[in-house]
């Protein structure tokens, strides 16, 4: 068990890093507002996995779980609000394509 620990850690770290790449790729390439939120979700999943891993490896499972649970709750609120905004956008312009939202130049 203890011998396997670094391997398990590194394996799932790779998984989490690949999730990060996927999420950022999605965020950069997409114009669809909902899909951007899905990209964010993937990023958050990756971070959750990182926190759980950190807790597992250092033996502070309880703290890591407490943090992960809090994180999940905050994530769902943010997504709910974001979806609300997307729906309002849809109501106004009948589309969820981000390219149509270029009234404000950043």
């Amino acid at each position: 068990m203890t011998n396997e620990l670094p391997q398990v850690f590194w394996l799932f770290s790779i998984g989490a890093i690949l999730l990060l790449i996927t999420g950022f790729y999605c965020l950069i390439m997409t114009y669809n507002l909902v899909r951007a939120l899905i990209g964010l979700e993937i990023l958050t999943k990756s971070v959750t996995l990182f926190i759980i891993l950190a807790g597992y490896v250092t033996g502070r499972m309880a703290l890591a779980q407490a943090l992960a649970i809090t994180l999940i709750i905050i994530e769902v609120v943010v997504i709910a609000v974001a979806v609300g905004i997307v729906l309002c956008v849809y109501k106004n312009i009948k589309s969820i394509d981000g390219r149509l939202l270029r009234n404000i130049k950043g």
Partner: peptide, 25 residues
């Protein structure tokens, strides 16, 4: 709920969430 404000808010959500991911990492 006017369109410009919604766009501003959405941009803010995306960038802020990216920042959040960095901080959590």
């Amino acid at each position: 709920r006017d369109t410009n404000a919604l766009e501003g808010a959405f941009k803010y959500i995306i960038l802020s969430a990216t920042a959040t991911v960095m901080m959590l990492l």
